[in-house]
Design a protein around this nucleic acid. Sequence first.
DNA 1: CTACTGCAAGACAACGTTGTCTCTCGATTT
DNA 2: AAATCGAGAGACAACGTTGTCTTGCAGTAG
Lengths: 273, 273
Amino acid sequence: MGRPTMNDVARNAGVSLKTVSRVVNGETTVDPGLAARVRAAVAALGYRPNLGASMLRRNDRRTRMIGVLLTDLAGPFSAAVHRAVEDEARARGVHVLGGSTDDDPQRAQDLVEAFARRHVDGVILMASAVVDLPSVVIDREAGIDQGMRHLRNHGHRRIAFVEQEVHAVFALPDPPTAILAGSTPVTIEVVRALRERGLRDRVALVGLGDFPAADLLEPAVTVVTQDPGATGRAAAGALFEQIDGGTPGARTISIPTTLIARGSGEIRPATGS
Amino acid sequence: MGRPTMNDVARNAGVSLKTVSRVVNGETTVDPGLAARVRAAVAALGYRPNLGASMLRRNDRRTRMIGVLLTDLAGPFSAAVHRAVEDEARARGVHVLGGSTDDDPQRAQDLVEAFARRHVDGVILMASAVVDLPSVVIDREAGIDQGMRHLRNHGHRRIAFVEQEVHAVFALPDPPTAILAGSTPVTIEVVRALRERGLRDRVALVGLGDFPAADLLEPAVTVVTQDPGATGRAAAGALFEQIDGGTPGARTISIPTTLIARGSGEIRPATGS
DNA sequence: CTACTGCAAGACAACGTTGTCTCTCGATTT
DNA sequence: AAATCGAGAGACAACGTTGTCTTGCAGTAG
């Protein structure tokens, strides 16, 4: 005796199973009196349709679930994408299964496989991966180009692109005059490291990804930003179009980037060194 | 003709449906030769089990999905909780449906209802709500007390607790000498507002929720932090315990808070005013 | 050589729902 | 008044899988 089923409702209301199904699905070809009895029984028993069973039988075969595979659900960029995707999905009555890949292709693969077993209607991924499902790939790359170009335009020739080992950069024999930081956490680490070494006004810094207090630091941090909300919306939009239209194959969404000059990225290399 | 089913695999391998089921589920009572044929057919057809159908029939009736309802999937606290829950779930082969409530009880209710229709095994919520599912409620409140106490201990008597309208506070006839900011976005807004008014060293500020650059601002921002990772892990742990143990009813997880004094919260009220 | 045991493998029902078909009954048409 | 129609309501199969029961066959004991 788990949850009540349609059958229980039918018995309780003294109608056939199929009539309950009709009422629950809002079909109009039901006598108002019977429909009322059914609704009363539904309320009395606390009946809830079993979406899994219904999807199994339905003709459209949609689970109305999609999967979203992001680098790290806790990271600001991923989280914002996730939220935007959720909003698009909600508008269509679709739910979102989330997954962090930590940029590990194997994990991405495993998650895609697992989501496929759940018959998600489609998948959005941040890593590049090919799938035999409707899918949209979010491609992040453009920002690096733009950041590099900006620093070169300000006279820098030795530019470090930093992803993990922030401190190693400063140990180099011929240290860079500018730093491009690969993510917001790294950017903040770099700011901290520059301060410790008294270099805050001497080494240029551009961060990939904006963060809330960037303009409040001294110097304020120049960043290249990719609007995660727009990205998520675009990806979700493309995915649903693919699902609904039956367009096959994977699509790639690339994100326009914007550079916000705030100071740290406009420091010029010391001429006398 | 959609995806291949067990029946297709069975036909292809020349065995019965049930034998395929046994192989797929790793039962050992299958002749190695047949098992190999089945596995070959699975690979050849690209067969994937349909978890929905299997859950319908299985005895344990678990979908191995849980729902997580947070204020805002894009917010740093929610996102970190979400990630921690994901990790706990992954360790148990469970997937996570996420949802943002924006602190709207109606939306929370709707999402719970929708997740229940999907037969999630349980739910974690940040808002308070009662559900007829295994559930864990995350309770955030303790931080306010701790922040208030800290400011009072530093001599403040007029303390503003700010949630939305940051600027309204400064328009008051008798403005506060200290501010407790309700969330990290608000904290950053307050910092900005204090600077604009030249009050950065005169009005005390404590923020609810730590953020990455808090120690790099001037003055560095004192915060009350609640470890979202620990919270997520605790909530997920309690939920799975409830699911597995069959313990009924909802449980509440309360989060220990820590105050990190960095400067902005230790400013004392001007004596001469 | 027959009877029994054990185990692999298939047949069949069932999970909760929806699609399709059939039946009944009152209302409309000639 | 008989025939026709339409619409509401139920019976039944099916979705893809797993639980249970039965069958068949090889191996062992008597």
